[in-house]
Each structure stands twice: as structure tokens, then as C-alpha cells.
């Protein structure tokens, strides 16, 4: 009886083992499963470009700069939340901690750093090593290739523009200094997402436009830094010193994207004395329609330059 039971158990175990067995090493064989087409191709390129931008799956030297930018953007938020937690007071209302829209000042450095150093590589590398021609032999077309790359940069930049603010929102809420009620909370959330994505998209378009114009990464880096910092200096000089029309700030990408953020957050002009002159004060003279139009123009112009440049590369 015991023998029979034992044999039955052994057979059951063997059957179970057979059912669980898998052939893992099938070697090359035909594939008849699903194919994801253009959408799958774009997802694959988008995902790999995000990983590439952040240095994931690449040697350590490629991880350092992008993650440094993320840390630079996030550390002040962590410090402020730490202060709020330790001091246990309503710090936002006491103007000790920055409000959400004011945190952009801390992000700006990381954003410039990221755009200047990291973004050029995402387009330049594919042209330099020939991967572009290989990508175009797949279901990807020029527009889908560029859209995937732009989406990857925008998503990565949004980590910097949106991530720290979301962290602040959640932390302030948990600590008890957040917005009052669900409605206000959602309003702040939408403003954080809207401003962060808008800033990321505009700066992405401009950065990619410059990166598309040269195969030399160093030239692209210099071009982007000149665009972001040089334009600040020149337009500031023209408007504040030469007292020219503040609409010249339309050529100042970083100030205009910051102005868009302020309009999204409903922030008015800074409270300064009559003698004070600052970009914030003069830009506040510009209409919201003008600010939105200028940001849209940067986005469209940047995209148009990239498209024009790649059409020339494709034809050549």
C-alpha cells in the first residue's frame, strides 16, 4: 500500500516537474508572435533614449553629469522640507520657505547644466556613430525618430522641472503646510505639471535645434550655453541699461520660460521700489498673450530648425 502511494506521489511529482519544465535555450527560431509596429518602435527608442540621457546601462562617467543635475535640482527641496519638519511651523506662510513657483530659481542651474552638457549627446551621438541610418532602416521615419528623441529629452527634463516641486507638494502636504483642500491641492498640482512640462518642452526644442546644427558635441554645448546664459546677459543689457522695449526679452529663452511659469502660477509683478529694475519687473509689463506666444514661437522655431536640418541630412 505504502509502495503504491509512494509510486503515485513520485509520478505526480514527475508530472508536475514536466509541466513546470521550460526550454530556455531554444536557439534561433521563427517568430510568429505580435509585432508592435511604429508605436512599438517609438516606445523602444524613447525608452532607450531616456536611459541613455540618464547614463543608465552606460559606464559610470556617463552617469555622473545627469545625476548631478538631478541632485542639484532636488537637494534644496530636501533641505527645505527638512527645515520645515524640524522647525514645525507654517513656514510657507511666514515666507521662510519658497513657494512652489519660487523654487524655479533652484532648478534653473540644474536645467542649464543638463541642457548644456547632456542634451547635445542625444542627437549628436546617433549622427556620429551612424545609428541614425540604422534607425531609419526600421519602421521609424524621420519624424517619428525626432519625436521619440524630443519626448525622451522632455521627459528627462521634466524630472528636473517637475520632480522637486512634486516632492515639495507632497512633503508640505504631509507636514501640514500644503494647499488647503483638495481643490487647491489639485490646482497646485496642475500648475506644477503644466509649468514644468512647458518649460521642459520649450528648452528641449531650443537645445535640440542647436544640437542638430553640428556633429561636434563641444560646439553644441557652447551653443546651448550661449543661448541660455548669453541671451540673458545681452537682453538684460538692452532692456535694463539701454532702456529698450521689454519685448526684447522675447529673445531671452530662460526669462521667457520663467515668465510663462509665473503666469501659470498666477504670480504678479515683484513688489519692488520704483527705482528698482529687474527682468521680473520689466517682463511683468508684457501681456500673458505675448509671453505664451513667445514660448510657443521658441517651441515651433526650435522644432522647425531640427526638422529642416534632418531633412537636409536625409537628402544628403
Amino acid at each position: 500500500m505504502n509502495d503504491a502511494t509512494g509510486a503515485a506521489d513520485a509520478r505526480a511529482q514527475a508530472t508536475e516537474a514536466d509541466n513546470a519544465a521550460q526550454i530556455l535555450d531554444e536557439r534561433y527560431r521563427p517568430y510568429s508572435g505580435a509585432r508592435h509596429g511604429l508605436a512599438g518602435a517609438m516606445r523602444a527608442l524613447d525608452g532607450s533614449s531616456v536611459r541613455f540621457t540618464l547614463g543608465l546601462g552606460r559606464p559610470a562617467r556617463h552617469k555622473f553629469l545627469p545625476w548631478l543635475a538631478v541632485v542639484v535640482a532636488l537637494v534644496p527641496a530636501i533641505v527645505f522640507v527638512g527645515i520645515a519638519t524640524v522647525l514645525d511651523i507654517d513656514l510657507i506662510s511666514e515666507n521662510i520657505l519658497p513657494e512652489y513657483h519660487q523654487y524655479y530659481g533652484f532648478i534653473e542651474l540644474a536645467l542649464f547644466f543638463f541642457c548644456g552638457i547632456v542634451v547635445p549627446e542625444i542627437l549628436v551621438a546617433d549622427r556620429r556613430n551612424g545609428m541614425l541610418s540604422l534607425y531609419l532602416s526600421t519602421p521609424l521615419r524621420l519624424w517619428s525618430y525626432l519625436a521619440s528623441k524630443a519626448a525622451a529629452v522632455t521627459v528627462t527634463l521634466a524630472v528636473i522641472t517637475v520632480g522637486p516641486l512634486l516632492f515639495l507638494l507632497v512633503a508640505y502636504t504631509v507636514e501640514g503646510s500644503g494647499p488647503d483642500g483638495l481643490g487647491d491641492w489639485l490646482t497646485v498640482l496642475v500648475r506644477i505639471l503644466g509649468s514644468g512640462i512647458a518649460i521642459a518642452a520649450t528648452i528641449t526644442a531650443a537645445s535640440l535645434a542647436i544640437s542638430s546644427l553640428t556633429d561636434r558635441r563641444a560646439f553644441a554645448v557652447i551653443g546651448i550655453i550661449l543661448l541660455l546664459l548669453g541671451s540673458q546677459f545681452v537682453t538684460g543689457l538692452l532692456v535694463e541699461v539701454a532702456e529698450m522695449d521689454p519685448r526684447i526679452y522675447a529673445f531671452n529663452l530662460s526669462e521667457m520660460s520663467e515668465a510663462l511659469k509665473d503666469r501659470i502660477f498666477g504670480v504678479g509683478p515683484p513688489e519692488l521700489g520704483e527705482d528698482d529694475a529687474s527682468p521680473g519687473l520689466r517682463i511683468s509689463e508684457l501681456s500673458t498673450l505675448f509671453v505664451v506666444a513667445v514660448n510657443a514661437a521658441w517651441l515651433v522655431a526650435g522644432s522647425a530648425v531640427v526638422w529642416w536640418r534632418y531633412r537636409r541630412i536625409e537628402a544628403g
Binding site: R35, H36, G40, A44, N129, Y135, S137
Partner: peptide, 27 residues
């Protein structure tokens, strides 16, 4: 293609997997 299009820093298996995905295969 005839041209040497391989990114130096990528592992061979990652490169081939990535191109297979771009050609539509599930991950």
C-alpha cells in the same frame, strides 16, 4: 549597412535587443 554603426559603449546583446524592439518585437 556597410558603415560601422555600432555604439562602442553598448553591450552586444543590448544593441541587438534594442534594434529588435525598434523593429517591433515585444521586450
Amino acid at each position: 549597412p556597410e558603415r560601422d554603426v555600432l555604439p562602442d559603449e553598448m553591450r552586444a546583446v543590448d544593441f541587438v535587443r534594442h534594434l529588435a524592439q525598434v523593429r517591433g518585437l515585444p521586450r
